[in-house]
Every structure is written in structure tokens, then in C-alpha cells.
Nucleic acid binder design. Structure first.
Lengths: 202, 202, 202, 202
DNA sequence: AATGAATGAGCGTTCATTCAT
DNA sequence: CATGAATGAACGCTCATTCAT
């Protein structure tokens, strides 16, 4: 005989968000398999059953987390690049690297969780693809605009994306090679080098 | 009255290896959490209890797999670099990248399993560190020898290691940017660029 | 701003009937345990909570279904028997068997559901008892009237009732021993024999 | 960290039987859905997991119970009929009815459970069919041998089987129409009547 | 060394029921 | 009257680990 002690209704979107937030925090701390649905609902201060009012399975929250992450990062990167003059390829590339690195610095573990530790069912690295595609386009456009010479922009995009992801991850993992500022500077220099620009140039 | 159809006992090392092989195959195919101890022992053709004669917990096999992987890759990379003239830094760097890439191409999923999907308990990327340290030493030595100018060899090592890992992984993931040969050539060119060498030079 | 597309309220009796109809259909199709309250309310096109405005528990609908079934069948049987001359015992018995068989043929699964699959809490076969009692009375009256010789009318009533139920059920279960007409004829013959009448007699 | 307090091994068949016995008792007392696996294992004095060493699902015990019941009853009935002279059709029919009734009197609820309350997945009443078929053969053989005149032995078999089942069930349900002996006598008389024999004859 | 029956904590999911709106 | 979000006890099933043989 279930007794509803606190059946306080909230807008579905809000409840859903609270569940996602609790899940994100727990997945990050103990992994996906290491987190129980009950912990998530406890974290969101709802009853266990409420979880299934918003997600069909435990895996579904992860899916939702994935989408939320990708959208946020893509928005940030797009905005940063768009903030640069149309033909300043160097600036656009630097903006991309910087925005992406900052996004990862803020959410490296989350990215790891949703795309690496528990890869999406279909293809590995959907986010990777979305972001890499964006970078690919940028590099190809710069090459077309004469900013640099890159033969296979796809390869370079993958190369740079992973390099960036790695150094950021390393930094986030607590083995810092310096503060955030110097990280971004060093990253920029390496990105420039990778496309054949001289890092020190303005 | 049990009949010993096959030798019931084997040297511990051999049994252990068979269990590790079965575990590796299964972990790769179904993931760590998705594999049961019973499946491992069935795969190794021993009884369930035998597992615990060789490993204290399920996690321990993964640990052992990690160590086996790192040692093998490190040996290969070390040998490849040692095969180059002492002062041919360019050649040594290229050898490093090539050996490491080939090692990953041959065992990308295994690396993913033991270092990414189920990260080691203590610090993230022990293998990364062992291999990155090796690369770090190489870059620092080359800088010291005047082959290139790198201020923070550690950063560059992490940068390159992850870039390499990423492009190799992409290739392994079935979205090839070309065949293995062209992958290695493109990789070499980017590695050279990253340390400031001109790729096209011999 | 909710818009009342259909009248939101209905006479209680009507709502209750709709819920019972939906429940009957679902219970028949998927069993009592296999049907959820939500499916019933969906079937009746009302909200989940509305169910509890009409029934205290899920078991209560079944109870209501039971009563509805018994009443209907008893009415039909009573009417059929009453349609025969007062002293035509043979005719009355045949009418009983025929009406009861037809009632079951039309609702065999429903009977099975409410009296067999989920027997009433208290005594087994309330319907059986109501109908059996009716038959018992009829047989006893016929014996008293000299139509046949039956010592324990109760036993014979139970015997006949179950025999009837069984052959009808078999027919309903899709393993017909003939069409409905021949079923009723064969049944009549067996019923007559069971009370010691010669079947072929007029 | 599971601790085995009493890991006492028993022959699989014995454990399986103990689980089946516990399940039978509980299913009979509280129904299939009303019984939990844990109650079964508690009843059999084993741990929960042990259940799944012997049955894949909860439904599987019921299946096993079904088979055990049918086999036992069929054996008893066959033996009883075989104990009568080959051409004593009256005696064979009486033996059939008596053995079947006794079998049911001893296990009426069990029959109800395994064949009626939770019908087998495929067709309704496998036992019914097996036993009915047996009776069908007997009636047909008797008709062929001139013992009685029955046109549709299948119909009569179903009729008698269900009549028998009903009166026995009624008796078992605690509403006795007399003691076991008089039940069997009354049953015999009705069975004879149903095939057109005069009950009082020797 | 090897076995495999036994254990039991734990998990994801379901769903009858309640009640604030 | 009607709604449907919220509740939480309960259940079937899994599986890492133990240990008597």
C-alpha cells in the first residue's frame, strides 16, 4: 500500500533535467555500470519509479546526456568561430581550438563518459564526428582560402581533434602541464604548426 | 568415477595465460561488464572455480591484460627506435610514430579496452604514461641534440601521442582515411610538422 | 489551457460499464495478471485515476465481471426453462441444457476467466453453484414429479453441469466435435441418458 | 561478498525435486502469480540462486509440475484398466472412471493448477487430451466390441471426463456429496448411464 | 590443482495505488 | 468528476565469489 508522502508535481522538463543532472554526476563519479537507478533517483530526490516516467531504461539517460553535451559544445564552438572575421583563417582556427579546449576542460570527463567509456550504440564518436566535421570544414575552407596547405583536411582534423582532446584530458586528469592559460597557448602553437603556420606569427 | 580425458592439471602460467586469452577475447567482444567469469572459464575450458586459483577478482584479469599490453607495445617501440642511428632524431621520431601506430593498428581495441573503457583504478593512462614518457624522452633528447626546438617536450608528447592514437583509432574504427601505408605517411608528415620539421624533407 | 474535446464527465454507471468492458476484453486477451490498470483505463479512454473512482482495487472489476456474467446467464436459463410447460420435465431439462450450453458457447472464455482462472476468493464456483442449484432444483422436481429416478439430485446436477461445461469448452477451444447444432443434439442425448431417459424417445 | 553458510551439495535430481515440491505446495496455496521464487527457495531450504541452477524461469517449474502430474495419472489409469479382463468393457470403463477419480481426488487442485489456472502455452488441456484420448479409445473399443452403442466416442469421452472432473472437484472443494466410497459408486452409476448401460446391472 | 554446486546481495524494471490539482 | 505525476514495495533474474569435495 504505497503512500505518497511528497507527491509534488513539477514540470516534466524540470524533473527530467534533475534526473539527468543527478545521473551525470553519478556516472562521472562511479561510472555507468557502477551507478544504480536508485542512486540516481535518490540524487534527484524522487522515488525510484519516477525515473521510468522520464526514461525507458537506464541507458536512455546516458543517451540524453550525450545529446545534451554535443549540442552544448557544438553551439559554443560554432559561436566562437563565428566571432572571428570571415577571412581570418588563423584566427578562426585558433578560436576553434580555444573554444573546443575550454569546452573540454569544462567537461572532459563528461565527454569521456558519453563517447568513450560507453560508446553510442551505432558508430563510435558521434560527437567526435560532429565536431571533427566542423573542424574539417574549417581547415578545408582555410586551405581553399590560401591560409595553409593541407591535402587531407579530414586526416588533419582527426589528428588535431584528438591531440587537443588528449592534452586537455591530461590537464583535466590532474597532471597539469601548466595553468589553463599556458595550456591554451601551447595548444595554439601546436595547432598552428600542425597546419604549417609559424606559431610565433601574429 | 571421473575419467581424466585431458590432463587435469597444467603449469600455472599456462592456465593463467589461457584464462587471460579467453578473457581478452571476450572483453573485446562484449565489454568488461558484459562478460561473466563463467564465460571466461568456459572459453578457457576450465571450471568456474579455477578462475579464482589464478586471479583474486574479475578486475584482476583486466589488470593483467593491461600489463601484458603495455609491455608488448613498449618493447616494440623501444626496439624500433633503437634500430635508428643514435643521432638521427628525425628518423628516431618517425620510427617511434610508426611503431606505435602499427602497434595500435594491431591492437587498437585492446588498448581501448584496458585504458579507456575501463580505466585503471589509480591514474588515468598508465600505458599512456609509459609510452608518452618514452616519447617525451625522445623529444627532449632531440631538442637537446638540436634536431628541433620544443619548449615543453611533455606537452608535445601528450599532444602527439593522442593525435596518433586518434587517427589510428579512426582508421581501426572502419572509417579509413586511406590504406595503412598512406596513413603512416600522413601521420609522419604531421608528426614532423608538430615538432617544427618540414615534412617534405628527407 | 485544456480544451474539452469530449464531454469530460459521464454518468457513473456508464463510465463503470466502459471500464468493465475494457477490462473484460483485456482480461480475456491477456489474463488478469497480464493486464494493467493503465491498459484498462486506456481502453476505456479515461485517465488512470478514474479507475479508482469506480473500483477500489483491480480485483474488484473482476468481481463485478463475475456478477454481471452470472446474472446474465441465470436470467437466460431461467427464462428458457420457464418457457416450457410446467410438467414437461424432459422439455424443461432439455431447455436448461440448451440455454446453458448456448450461454457458455457465447461466453465460455469469460466463464473460464471469472470462475476458473481466477476463482472467487471465498468458495469455488459461485456461478457454478447458482446454476447448479437451479439445475439441482429442476432435477429434484422432475424426480418428485416421476419424470425420472434420481437419488442424489445434487450429484447429478454437478455431474451434468460439468459435463456440459466441458463439451462446450472443448467446442469453444477450437477443437469442435461438430457444428453447434450437432453439439446441442449430442448434449441433449447425453443429458437424457444421464437421468435415465431414453434419448431417442420424443 | 557472499558467504556460503551451508553449501551442502545434493544430487541434482533431489534438489530439483525438493524445489518442485515446494513450488507445488506454494502454487496450490497461493497461486502461480502469488508465489515468489524466493518463497519457493525458502520452502526448499536453499538460496535464491539455487533455483536458477535447476530451472531457467519460474514458469519452468510449472511446466515440470505439469509433466510430473500427467505422467503419474496416466500411469495409474493405464494400470487400472489393464487390470481388467480384455473383454470386460463394463469393468474396464468402471476401472477407468475409478482410477481417474481417485487420481483427481488425490490431486484435483494440482490438476486445476497446471492445466486450468495456468494453461500450458500451446493447447488447452494437454493432460485432458492425453487422458481423454485414453478414454476415447476405451469407449470406441467397447462400442466396437458391442458393449454399448456410442456414435461419437470423442464427444462422450469429453463429456464423461469433465463430468468426472467436476464431481471430484466439488468433492475436493470441501462441499462433499458424501464420502469417497459413495462418490465413486454414484460416479460409476452415472458413467454407465452415460454410455447407455443400466447402472444397477452387475 | 581442479571442480561446480551453492550462495545471496544486488539490480533493473513494473505497476497498483494515492492525491494535489 | 477527472486527471496523471508520483510513489515505493515487490519481483524475477544475474553473477561474482566461496568452499566441500
Amino acid at each position: 500500500m504505497p503512500i505518497a508522502l511528497r507527491p509534488r508535481t513539477k514540470p516534466p522538463a524540470e524533473r527530467r533535467d534533475e534526473l539527468m543532472n543527478a545521473a551525470e554526476r553519478l556516472f562521472l563519479a562511479r561510472g555507468f555500470e557502477g551507478t544504480t537507478v536508485e542512486e540516481i533517483t535518490t540524487g534527484a530526490e524522487v522515488a525510484k519509479g519516477t525515473f521510468y516516467l522520464h526514461f525507458a531504461t537506464k541507458g536512455d539517460v546516458l543517451e540524453a546526456l550525450r545529446e545534451r553535451f554535443v549540442q552544448g559544445l557544438l553551439d559554443a564552438v560554432t559561436a566562437a568561430v563565428a566571432g572571428q572575421p570571415r577571412d581570418d583563417w588563423r584566427g578562426r582556427l585558433a578560436a576553434w581550438a580555444r573554444a573546443c579546449a575550454i569546452g573540454y576542460l569544462d567537461a572532459a570527463s563528461l565527454h569521456h563518459l558519453v563517447f568513450v567509456a560507453v560508446p553510442p550504440p551505432s558508430r563510435e564518436g558521434m560527437a567526435r564526428n560532429v565536431l571533427v566535421d566542423h573542424l574539417d570544414d574549417l581547415i578545408a575552407a582555410g586551405a581553399h582560402g590560401g591560409a595553409w596547405t593541407i591535402e587531407e583536411s579530414g586526416f588533419t582534423a582527426v589528428f588535431l581533434f584528438n591531440a587537443l582532446h588528449g592534452v586537455v584530458n591530461q590537464a583535466a586528469a590532474g597532471e597539469p602541464t601548466g595553468d589553463r592559460g599556458s595550456l591554451l597557448r601551447a595548444l595554439e602553437a601546436h595547432v598552428f604548426r600542425a597546419v604549417g603556420l609559424r606559431p610565433e606569427a601574429g
